[in-house]
Design a protein around this nucleic acid. Structure first.
Lengths: 146, 146
DNA sequence: CTTGAACCTGTAGTTACTACAGGTATTAGG
DNA sequence: CCTAATACCTGTAGTAACTACAGGTTCAAG
């Protein structure tokens, strides 16, 4: 009944999604969100679809997808169906990356834990952790680096 | 006997450490490496200490310390002894961060694995992975995020 | 009609490098 | 001694994904 507006200002969208106003504008600039309609004065007015799309982006970002990948995902989503295999491919790649990072971090955690443990005992003449850092350090190298 | 030079050019340092030339210059610019002596023509000449210091930096970076933290670590290292507790503090904080990331990534890995698994089966009308991304997605949130 | 909050654009800063462009030094070979 | 190839030099701009202003306009409430 009451005719409160069927659009949302950028501030409202921000509050509903937890995404900062600047970030929303940024997503528009880089082409992830369509430019919304504007009020006479130039303020952005969003509808419910825009909210959905932004939530999609945010969720994908939470899962660690890059913006480029999100863009790809969105265009597949827009294409409706028949893209499932492609989506799976993208997600699978990303999953592999995540697993790689997970392994790296696990190694890291171990090395750091050891270092900190060796350090306990307080004020020694030479901190064993510092010494360890001065040592050669071919610890967890995974490749020569690009 | 032979008097081959006791210094190294930046290229040699690069090869010995695996650190790119540009990165070495960068570390100098941001104050992690002291400016080395120069040849008459302006080329940088490094001694063995510089190499040690660079290795320290690289090792710390490998362990995920930020450059700011490396700076702090280096100044503690220069201070000799009596800093062990501080070093331990810094490393301990970093370790906590690493453990946090590790947990986040583990959650991520699980979610992604589930998604990809649901996707298997190929060409369905609506890709379940895409659908999942459109869903609310308050999955692994750890804080409001600054 | 006034005020204060929310909005606008555009630019610059963040992290830790990396990649030029355009020019000079060094060194190995002839 | 000269030359050509390589390595080096400076300075600037680009990368990812935002974030943070500055300086101005619009909106909604009272």
């Amino acid at each position: 009944m009451a005719d409160f507006p069927h659009y949302m200002t950028i501030g409202v969208v921000s509050k509903r999604t937890g995404c900062k106003v600047e970030t929303i504008r940024y997503y528009e600039r880089v082409g992830l969100l369509a430019a919304p309609v504007r009020s006479l004065g130039g303020h952005r007015h969003y509808d419910h679809d825009a909210l959905k799309r932004l939530n999609f982006i945010l969720r994908a970002r939470q899962l660690g997808f890059t913006l480029d990948t999100v863009r790809a995902l969105l265009s597949l989503a827009d294409g409706e169906g028949k893209s499932c295999a492609e989506v799976e491919g993208i997600a699978g790649n990303h999953l592999a990356e995540v697993r790689g990072k997970l392994e790296d971090l696990a190694v890291l955690e171990k090395v750091l834990t050891d270092m900190v443990a060796r350090c306990r005992g307080g004020t020694m003449p030479d901190c064993p952790l510092i010494e360890a850092l001065f040592e050669d350090g071919t610890a967890g190298r995974r490749d020569g680096g690009n």
